[in-house]
Design a binder for these strands. Structure first.
Ligand SMILES: [Zn+2]
Ligand SMILES: [Zn+2]
Ligand SMILES: [Zn+2]
Ligand SMILES: [Zn+2]
Lengths: 152, 152
DNA sequence: ATAGTAATTGTTACTTAATATTAATTATAA
DNA sequence: TTATAATTAATATTAAGTAACAATTACTAT
């Protein structure tokens, strides 16, 4: 954790930004909730718990900065709010998501899976891929189990 | 075109909705701009040209209805507005998009390409896929040509 | 046809995610 | 220290989208 903060600090410095207390507090919230998909408002409320003096605009600015530096990825699941997701350290591409249309759960797929598809797209559409967004909508394993229970 | 409207009319009827003049005008705009990715506001302005009496809320309601019936798909490219995209007739899944980070162009991939990936996801993550969203961000073939021109 | 019921619409008001503004604060450089 | 630049907090503003509601339109039953 601490080393991860240190590495993020270096990433900021090498782009000539500082890791201010407000930025560090924001990054810590993201690290402590890595499995979630927090909105800017969510992050703001969590940061406020430990740093009540922080302003909402600062959180927005920090999230924008972290997105620019590819430390976090901004994603939208179609509910009108942007969500922020820490990128795996050293990951070339953004990970994928499984959104359950029954319970709303969002699970992650860290494996790439798209290597072959991307090769085809680059060749056939002559498109130089820099990043991707892949989200599957469907029924998660938990909700499938629930349905089985009822029918048994 | 006319037959396409007729089929959409039937789809509405079989869900016990009517194809009112306002709804028809909205669908026509979508059909006439099938290659674009219009926002609700875009659709509203285009519909107003031929049906100036239409209200913005009606356009929003119609787009929501068409989304429910899977006649259009709602998609968000990360710029804060939802866009509406006619689904290919009979297509099981939503098509994919190539978003150019240079010029902003959005091109489409109608081929599925994800069959193998989806088989893996369904099996390994035990997730019942109902739909997907796949967007590649990168450099389109036009912008790649532009860069070559300069360096030659 | 007539009256009654349900669906649909247009206008307006409202909500809220996100951005812009600006003065104050903090850090860095001379 | 003094000056300069970066960053912040608070506030105002923008704009996408939704809600409320009265008015209109379309069916249904008599
Ligand atoms: Zn994620
Ligand atoms: Zn579920
Ligand atoms: Zn499209
Ligand atoms: Zn381009």
């Amino acid at each position: 954790m601490e080393t991860r903060i240190e590495r993020i600090k270096k990433q900021l410095h090498s782009a000539s930004y500082k890791l201010t207390p407000q930025r560090e507090a924001t990054v810590r919230v993201l690290l402590e909730n890595e499995e979630d998909h927090l909105s800017a408002e969510d992050v703001y409320l969590l940061v406020k718990e430990k740093s009540p003096e922080i302003g909402l605009a600062t959180v927005y600015r920090t999230l924008e900065l972290l997105t620019e530096l590819k430390i976090v990825d901004k994603i939208n699941f179609g509910d009108g709010v942007s969500r922020y997701d820490l990128r795996q350290e050293g990951a070339a591409h953004f990970h994928h998501h499984l959104v359950c249309i029954e319970c709303g759960a969002v699970d992650e797929i860290q494996e790439d899976l798209l290597e072959d598809v991307e090769a085809v797209v680059e060749r056939r559409w002559n498109f130089k891929i820099k990043d991707h967004r892949l989200t599957f909508h469907g029924i998660c394993y938990r909700c499938q189990a629930k349905v089985e229970e009822k029918t048994v």
